[in-house]
């Protein structure tokens, strides 16, 4: 997915709200949002959401990567 602006990410997240069949995209969007976050708390918040939606999607490789990042951030 092409890089999106924070506003575009926010709009797409709202568009996909509740659509768990789009869990992989939701995970990706939150990971992008985490990269754009300029506050560490926001970064960990979005990585948490990226992790939850990766769990929903059953994407084991992505789950492992996100859990490693959360541990490094003190979130797990």
């Amino acid at each position: 997915m092409a890089d999106l602006t924070p506003a575009q990410i926010d709009a797409r997240l709202k568009q996909l709200h509740g659509q768990l069949e789009a869990a992989a995209e939701l995970s990706d969007l939150h990971e992008q949002a985490a990269q754009l976050a300029d506050v560490s708390g926001d970064h960990r918040f979005h990585i948490t959401h990226a992790w939850v939606f990766a769990l929903v999607a059953g994407d084991d490789a992505r789950i492992a990567l996100l859990e490693a990042r959360l541990r490094a951030l003190g979130g797990l």
Binding site: G41, R44, F45, T48, L55, G74, G75, L76
Partner: peptide
């Protein structure tokens, strides 16, 4: 139980 997001505060998942 596999995940408890934000259960320890924002971004703290334990």
């Amino acid at each position: 139980l596999r995940a408890t997001p934000h259960v320890g505060g924002p971004g703290i998942n334990k």
